[in-house]
Design a protein around this nucleic acid. Sequence first.
RNA 1: GUGGGUGUAGCUCAGCAGGUUAGAGCGCCAGGUUGUGGCCCUGGAGGUCGUGGGUUCGAGUCCCAUCACUCACCCCA
Length: 416
Amino acid sequence: MSNKAPRGTRDILPQEASRWHFLEERFKKLCYIYDFAEIRTPLFEETELFVRSVGEESDVVKKEMYTFKDRGGRELALRPEGTAGVARAYLEHGMHNIPQPVKLFYYGPMFRYDRPQAGRQRQFYQMGIEVFGTKEPSADVEVIKFTAEFFLSIGFKNLKLHLNSVGCLQCRPFYQDDLKKFARGKLSLLCPDCQKRALLNPLRLLDCKAESCRELMKDSPQIEDYLCKSCHGHFNEVLDLLKALNVPYYVDSRLVRGLDYYTNTAFEFISEDIGAQGSLGGGGRYDNLVESCGGPAVPGVGMAVGVERIVLAMEKEKLWPEKNEPEGVFLAIDGPELREEGLVMLYSMREKGLRAETDYLNRSLKAQMKFAHRNRFRYVIIFGKEEKLKNEVKLRDMLKGEQLELSYEKALNFLI
RNA sequence: GUGGGUGUAGCUCAGCAGGUUAGAGCGCCAGGUUGUGGCCCUGGAGGUCGUGGGUUCGAGUCCCAUCACUCACCCCA
């Protein structure tokens, strides 16, 4: 026992939790406006689901999953991302047989065993949306536009939308091959990581951070020259629609994503000021995902945003509103013999829906006043011997510093 | 998994080159003010100096290990 939250996890204390509520509310409101319906899937799934969808060779599966065997011998894994579980649920409940597209949103914790750093934890929260059942570029745009609107609605003005197409299963292999060939010629000059990438995951060669590698890869083959006709057309239409909708974007031919299921459109919303892990959210199209989970060939497109990263970035950019105004009533009961009568008042205030609180430690009036002030109550009702004799209470406005004497009933009427 | 930085009170940090009872500010509690918050003053509570070894007459201070935090790589939200 160390009395510490496990590595890579942390507590969201009340002050921060209220910020999370704000984000959740905005997200859910937008989902309602865009007609996405909520789905809640389990926090763990069969390990195999993630292996098949996210990809056997991906880092997420190879080294970041929390896997375990339950008492029945089932191989399970805490979900490292949200899409796979939603796709599984889509299949399991035959949602491919209802009118398409099916638009779902989710919200909750994800788990990846990775070394924590700024904006990266082992348990982190994502809010995401998915559109199943259409290949149309307008669906990609729906998801991107939603994300752009979401970030705008919470105050971001400087996020960059990076956009790319990673092609499909037909055209991507040609590109990957040529990229490999290109890299092979310079293998000895590349950094050790890139030497591995050249063999295993050539697309990753494109976004190496080493300056020397960037220089070497400068003249590498470009994905856009390899996109097949349909991928090319798809991508261009996405771009046209974004233009028409005034969503600014930046075509980043080096943008690749780590989850194997992506096809065609890939995008990320990037913040400049929260350190190395600057992606606040991202997503793309996954036309082979449902099929590779053993279902029919249902196309899809979706995205997820990281709550911790958004909170971080909003702090950096000072997007959080100032402390809220004092509100509610604190009932200062001065004298233990008045407690019973006071509590009746307290609960009657709460019945009326007022934020009402009292002291539970038999503290002095002074201490109670201090507490009311610190805890941002707008009013204090003082109920002591003096008031009891006159059958009155004092109602103090903590903001104005004024107070008046009146009956409790009148005070209550004033407050509600 | 790899590398750098950091771990002293609830929080932010001092602690000089190893030397008696470990400090400050903020916060908390109480009093100054016989019932009234904010400002001011006084007092009080609160510390296994991350943990475990080692060096030394003596370790918060030096060494090693370990854990955690942090930043970066890898990768991603």
